[in-house]
């Protein structure tokens, strides 16, 4: 039942961070498919199913979005603000995953409806532990809301 595994959407502009995340995900044996977009506008296009993202077989609507805050074109906070207003998909769980520990960013992210806020660790082992916990909590334990992928 490959198809029952929810897709993870990673919004991250740093290819190194993407690679490290992939490695951590593989090491954590997280089998969920991973889709990556590298800026805020692409994230919105993906969620809307615009352009080639209209093909939901290739680009399924995600079960969880991992969102960096500092992104080109549209910031993570803007994406979050748009998402929480968007019809039908506004309940998508969002875990902010960023470098900033600034309390202003943390507060703003929660104000805009982030479900969790994680700071990217420098040590890979810490990242690995974080990805393991993330997969366990958000993809296994957590009861997710109904989202468009179920009816498409």
């Amino acid at each position: 039942m490959e198809t029952t595994l929810g897709t993870l959407l990673l919004v991250e502009d740093d290819p190194n961070d993407v690679m490290l995340f992939r490695r951590a995900k593989d090491k954590a044996k997280l089998a969920n498919p991973l889709q990556v977009v590298s800026d805020g506008e692409m994230a919105i296009a993906y969620l809307r199913g615009e352009g080639h993202y209209a093909d939901r077989a290739a680009y399924p609507f995600p079960t969880l979005m991992l969102l960096d805050l500092k992104l080109p074109r549209k910031s993570g906070l803007e994406v979050l603000e748009w998402l929480r207003q968007a019809q039908g998909i506004h309940r998508l769980p969002v875990v902010v995953m960023t470098s900033s520990k600034e309390s202003a960013d943390v507060g703003k992210a929660y104000d805009l409806g982030a479900n969790s806020y994680l700071v990217k660790p420098v040590a890979f082992d810490t990242l690995l532990a974080m990805v393991r916990a993330l997969g366990m909590y958000w993809l296994i334990l957590n009861e997710n809301p109904e989202l468009p992928n179920e009816d498409s």
């Binding site: 190194n16 690679m19 490290l20 470098s99 900033s100 990217k120 890979f124």
Partner: peptide, 21 residues
């Protein structure tokens, strides 16, 4: 300090992560 926390640490993560890899 924001950019120190964000931008300086990004390459650091890469150095650390890929050396470990």
């Amino acid at each position: 300090s924001y950019s120190v926390s964000h931008d300086l640490r990004a390459p650091l993560r890469a150095i650390q992560g890929f050396t470990q890899a």
